[in-house]
Design a binder for these strands. Structure first.
Length: 817
RNA sequence: GCCGGGGUGGUGGAAUGGUAGACACACGGGCCUUAAGAGCCCGCAGUCCAUUGGACUGUGCGAGUUCGACUCUCGCCCCCGGCACCA
């Protein structure tokens, strides 16, 4: 016998049916061609709450509020044509739970969102669709925004920004001019990375270790070109030192340290035998110099100008024409030619033959290395290939065959040798970095115009600040030319300009900025997104900066994260921003893979559309599932069936909350458990352990379901408040169903007795020799009672023993043999 | 090669010195149902013995510290990420 369709028997509403042995939630709706089963929680009108929250301004951060501020930042997306990725949904939902809990705790929370809409992806997408980017971008932004809202993300939309808005990029250009004025933005003819597919130059950071473009995957080439560069190298040490003052996770720190790649080198001068020439080799390991048996110079090294041998020059010429990638790719057979010259190692007077080989690069050190085949793998291969002598100078971690260094440890030997070489005047210490200056111009249409005018008389001149922004002209045809000239060069009227210095005829710079330009400083603009006179007002910056928590992807650590730290430091030095570091805390999230464990991609057919999940199960299911998937910082694969598990949980929450006997008094067990749950949710959010947070809520529900009579209204309400950060819609709906008229998200985080939150272990584990043998109720005389246990006696036998008793935890009887 | 993070059931994972496997998925069994779906209940590391139940093994491998180790220490193997013929 069933109670089907008997509504309200337990105070349930439409869509929930109680059967003799449980409940069910089902609903169907007409979709035009028939009846479709809908799994969405039918009782939550998500759209109604989205509107209501927005109308009430529930998510607004208040300037000048007395409450303590908390600036929570997530990386703003490039609004692609594909719409929101479930990866965005994962990290933003988790941070949304963080923001919501902080608000309930009484913080004035700033959790903003905007759009990083300039750059190659937007332009390539527009080209593919045959539409102008200025039309595509707003459409994509609208889609993204709607998707964010559908997920219940509590962004403060009144602070929304868009990097392609002239009122925004006016200030991106303003920052460029400040850099230019300080000599930190400069033009130079340099060898740059060129992507033939995207037809533009790239920064070093945009080229992956295998030589391909990080965006499109095409192999890049090197070619010389006149470019705008930003002098990030001037900040290398500051960027390193700054890392000591912030709370970044270890992987983030190490990646930045590796990328900056600070090392102490020493440049050693060797006389060249029979000439007045000298050759300067550079090394980080001068301790091994007693083992040097040859010198290798890069093709293109100036010393080769003194060489007449045709074979040598031909080899050098050929090698120089090869790409760098080709020259240094691993496992390649060593090639090289003897130049006929010898250098003198002044340490021991030995004559070292000078070779030229393609694996030595002009761009590293001084373009000349000293070959120590006894200790270096690469030098060893070279020596083997050309039958050069090999001397061993390091044994274990001690120096041998090295004169005054013998017996010293490597580190000591390095500094002793450096001191010695400097004293003798043969060498000079120098700090070198892996980091190079940032190539900052692109030969593309869809970016911020670089605000410079080239005057034949005055050279490059900054556009006066009162004439900013230099607006991007509308071009119908904006395809990249591939010649290295920007499409903007075709806008003849726009290019023509008067020189701001002398008033004479001049030309505008036609290169644009890279897509990283707008994201360098976007978190500052959220503070004051309509300010027409400054980046943001001083007061607002002082109130909100620095960012308390910055959450984003691991793929941006040597790109955006490093760039924005550099720009922010510069702005601090010229007195614009109040602190030296922009982000107090940085954590990364893992990417969401397809169900097959591969990266989500159209070509694999494994893409999950968040809209689909929201339609089928509701936003709260998607949010909680994504938090539950696995550890937040770790890569995780999607699972369709695991989503169902979270959906089941929410259905149970619904039924239990509404069927609770409100007049019932909560038992002490129920109170202790809810105190523990609230404490756990709070602590797990702070530690970004969202997976165990969800698990704890599930555990509570499981207990509640088997003890329905123990839970009264007070505990139900605390549960709903605890649920509010992770499932904002369900919590809001239930809160109102319980008779409240105010939003659940305006409530205070539930208070609990900390003593209740500590779980008391009632059963004590009894071990014999460290192995669990029995369990005994805690209480008086527990040691004696435990010793009397049959199981314990059996394992002790008649042996003498001693007792380890950790009160409240464990008893261990250890036999003495 | 250097640096960072990891390795736990069929699967995702939990436990950071005190009962290994919370929570969830998958799987198996049962109830309910005309049926399907949904829901509810039970089982679920392995091996062996067994009537209730019990013994042994088990967190990549090998040692060590400890009354007690997934957790700490040392050595090794493997996976993921960063840097790199960087001299």
């Amino acid at each position: 016998m069933t109670n089907r369709n008997k509504k309200n028997e337990f105070g349930l509403c439409d869509g929930v049916r109680v059967t003799s042995n449980g409940y069910e939630i089902t609903t169907s709706r007409s979709n035009g061609s028939g009846v479709e089963r809908v799994y969405n929680l039918p009782m939550v009108d998500e759209e109604k709450w989205i509107k209501e929250w927005e109308n009430e301004g529930l998510h607004r951060a208040l300037d000048g509020d007395k409450k303590q501020k908390f600036y929570l930042l997530v990386e703003f997306p490039y609004p692609s044509g594909a719409g929101l990725h479930v990866g965005h949904a994962r990290s933003w939902s988790a941070m949304d739970a963080y923001a919501r809990k902080k608000r309930m705790e009484g913080y004035n929370v700033l959790y903003p969102m905007g759009w990083d809409a300039f750059g190659l992806p937007a332009e390539n997408y527009a080209l593919k669709m045959g539409v102008h980017p200025s039309q595509v971008v707003p459409e994509n932004i609208a889609t993204f925004k709607k998707q964010c809202q559908a997920l219940g993300l509590s962004f403060d939309w009144s602070r929304e920004i868009d990097t392609t808005n002239p009122q925004y990029y006016k200030w991106t250009q303003w920052i460029f001019i400040q850099l230019f004025k300080k000599g930190l933005a400069y033009q130079a003819e340099v060898s740059v990375n060129w992507c033939p597919a995207c037809k533009t130059n790239l920064a070093d950071e945009e080229v992956l270790a295998n030589g391909t473009h990080e965006r499109c995957g095409s192999p890049t080439q090197r070619r010389p070109q006149k470019q705008w560069l930003l002098k990030i190298t001037a900040y290398a040490d500051k960027l390193l030192e700054g890392l000591e003052t912030v709370d970044y996770s270890e992987d983030v720190k190490m990646q930045q340290v590796n990328w900056i790649g600070r090392k102490e080198w020493i440049d050693i001068t060797y006389p060249v035998v029979g000439t007045n020439e000298k050759i300067v080799v550079s090394t980080t390991r001068p301790d091994t110099n007693f083992g040097a048996t040859f010198v290798v110079v890069a093709p293109g090294h100036p010393i080769l100008q003194t060489v007449k041998d045709r074979k040598v020059l031909e080899y050098a010429q050929k090698a120089e024409n090869k790409s760098e990638l080709e020259r240094i790719s691993q496992g390649k057979k060593k090639t090289g030619v003897f130049t006929g010259l010898y250098a003198v190692n002044q340490l021991n007077g030995q004559k070292l033959p000078i070779w030229v080989a393609d694996f030595v690069l002009m761009t590293v050190g001084t373009g000349a290395v000293v070959g120590v085949p006894g200790h270096d793998k690469r030098d060893f291969e070279f020596a083997k290939a050309f039958d050069l002598p090999i001397v061993k100078v390091v044994d274990g971690d001690k120096m041998i065959n090295s004169g005054f260094l013998d017996g010293l440890e490597i580190q000591t030997a390095i500094s002793k040798m450096m001191d010695y070489l400097e004293r003798k005047g043969w060498g000079k210490r120098i700090i070198r970095y892996n980091l190079h200056d940032w190539v900052f111009s692109r030969q593309h249409y869809w970016g911020e115009p670089i605000p410079i005018v080239h005057c034949p008389k005055c050279g490059p001149v900054a556009v006066p600040e009162d004439q900013l922004p230099v607006e991007l002209p509308y071009l119908k045809k904006y395809e990249p030319s591939g010649t290295g000239e920007s499409p903007l060069a075709k806008a003849a009227d726009w290019v023509k300009a008067a020189c701001p210095e002398c008033g004479g005829p001049a030309r505008r710079e036609t290169d644009t900025m890279p897509n990283w330009a707008g994201s360098n400083w976007y978190f500052i603009r959220y503070l004051d997104n309509k300010n027409e006179r400054e980046l943001a007002s001083k007061e607002k910056m002082k109130h909100w900066l620095p960012v308390d928590m910055y959450q984003g992807g691991a793929e941006h650590i040597t790109l955006h994260l490093l760039y924005s730290r550099f720009i922010y430091r510069f702005l601090h030095e010229i007195g614009v921003v109040p602190t030296a570091e922009p982000y107090m805390k940085r954590r990364t999230h893992g990417i969401v893979l397809g169900a097959d464990g591969r990266k989500m991609s159209k070509s694999f057919g494994n893409v999950i559309n968040p809209d689909e999940i929201v339609r089928k199960y509701g936003a709260d299911t998607l949010r909680m599932y994504e938090m539950f998937m696995g550890p937040f910082g770790q890569m995780v694969a999607w699972s369709d069936t695991a989503v169902e598990g979270v959906y089941r949980f929410l259905k149970r929450v619904w039924v239990l909350a509404l069927s609770a006997k409100h007049e019932a008094r909560s038992t002490s067990e129920a109170k202790a458990r809810i105190a523990r749950l609230v404490a756990k949710i709070g602590a797990d959010i702070e530690a970004l352990k969202f997976n165990t947070m969800v698990a704890a809520a599930m555990e509570y529900i499981n207990w509640w379901q088997s003890h329905p009579d123990e839970v009264g209204k007070d505990v139900v309400e605390k549960f709903i408040l605890g649920l509010a950060p992770m499932a904002p819609f369900t919590a809001e709906e239930l809160w109102h169903k319980l008779g409240h008229t105010d939003s659940v998200h305006k409530q205070k985080w539930p208070e609990y007795d900390p003593k209740l939150a500590v779980e008391k272990q009632r059963v004590i584990v009894v071990q014999v020799n460290g192995k669990v043998r029995d369990r005994v109720e805690d209480g008086v005389d527990i040691e004696q009672r435990a010793a009397l246990s049959d199981k314990v006696k059996k394992f002790i036998g008649g042996a003498k023993y001693r007792t380890i008793y950790v009160p409240g935890k464990i008893i261990n009887f250890v036999c003495l043999t």
